[in-house]
Amino acid sequence: AEDTGVRVELAEEDDGRKSSIALRLWVEDAKKLKGKSKDNGAIEFTFELEKETPDDVAQEMVDAGFFHESDVKIIAKSIRDRVALIQWRRERICPMLH
């Protein structure tokens, strides 16, 4: 995945079955963001794989004051890349479940 300066990782082990997964997001390189972000630390949240889109969550993070509006796309992309990887892994490792 492209280096967006924003890191998103699983916050719990993925058993391949749950529809919602816990993710953790933090800024690795603040210079890649357009707006100034607060020194947030790591933001942990749950993501509904079937129901939600990374854009929705990114917008909520902006609304909650974690990031500037101008960075909503880079946040969404970072989440999207990680979610795509998780879904790819699930389909590859547990094809019977899909």
Partner: peptide, 27 residues
């Protein structure tokens, strides 16, 4: 721990905690 902060927004719960030093990229 005491550094953990919980932020609610649009029905979602964000849990904010410090990033462990080992996870930060070296500048």
């Amino acid at each position: 721990n005491s550094f953990t902060q919980v932020v609610h927004s649009a029905g979602r719960r964000f849990i904010v905690s410090p990033v462990p030093e080992s996870r930060l990229r070296e500048q």
